[in-house]
């Protein structure tokens, strides 16, 4: 199986590449649409700011890739900023338009909870996932309350209830951790840095691709 990692010049691809390789899949890292579409599934990684990432996707002519990903039902996994880009809009450094594969917007942690108590931003560290439902490819995993590694200052909100798979509680906010709709999945945390739970999630996703479930 071949996984294509979308290389649009944002962030650390190395850890993602290594994590997927450790699980036995072949990896190509590319900014070429045809090459990427030839892979069995795609990963959209990303570290950095939302508007910079959208600009880079436009400059590398990769925005239209996502239309074909949707049309061909090619499994896609967005990680961290890569997940946020799949939403409609973001308020990071201004008003930005995203790829719009998921309904909803990316908002900033306020740093104050409902009672006016301050909490830390970024949301950095290990938080437990609370599952609302399990996609087919994940149904055999018992991962409720397992810890994964988050590091972000913005989060998805106003999304469709049906798209939410698992969330973490931070500062009294429901922080979407995993979203999924059809063949499109997003993870706000870093599965490649999330120890055994991250390995279980990536393994299940890769197996799901093989079985045509992801």
């Amino acid at each position: 199986m071949k996984i294509g990692i979308i290389d649009y010049g944002m962030g650390n691809l190395f850890s993602v590449e290594q994590a997927v390789k450790r699980l036995g899949a072949d990896v190509i890292i590319s900014a070429d649409k045809a090459e990427l579409l030839a892979a069995d599934a795609l990963i959209l990684p990303g570290v950095g700011a939302f508007p910079d990432a959208m600009t880079r996707l436009e400059e590398t002519n990769l925005v239209s890739l996502f239309d074909e990903v949707v049309a061909t039902k090619k499994p896609l996994l967005g990680i961290c900023l890569g997940m946020q880009l799949l939403f409609e809009t973001s308020v990071e450094k201004g008003d930005n338009k995203g790829l719009g594969l998921f309904k909803g917007r990316i908002a900033e942690f306020s740093g104050k909870d409902a009672a006016g108590e301050a909490y830390r931003v970024p949301h950095m560290g290990w938080n437990n996932l609370q599952f609302k439902r399990y996609p087919v490819w994940l149904s055999k995993e018992a991962l409720d309350n397992e810890y994964v590694y988050f590091v972000h200052s913005f989060y998805a909100t106003d999304l469709e209830d049906a798209d939410l798979v698992a969330y973490a509680d931070y500062g009294g906010e429901i922080v979407p951790g995993i979203v999924q709709k059809g063949s499109i999945t997003g993870m706000q945390f870093h599965p490649e840095k999330s120890g055994s739970c991250g390995v279980a999630l990536l393994t299940a996703w890769l197996k799901g691709i093989e079985k045509g479930e992801a």
Partner: peptide
């Protein structure tokens, strides 16, 4: 750093 990132899945 490269070897550690290849071998480990913690930050």
């Amino acid at each position: 750093v490269r070897e550690t990132a290849s071998a480990l899945s913690i930050p």
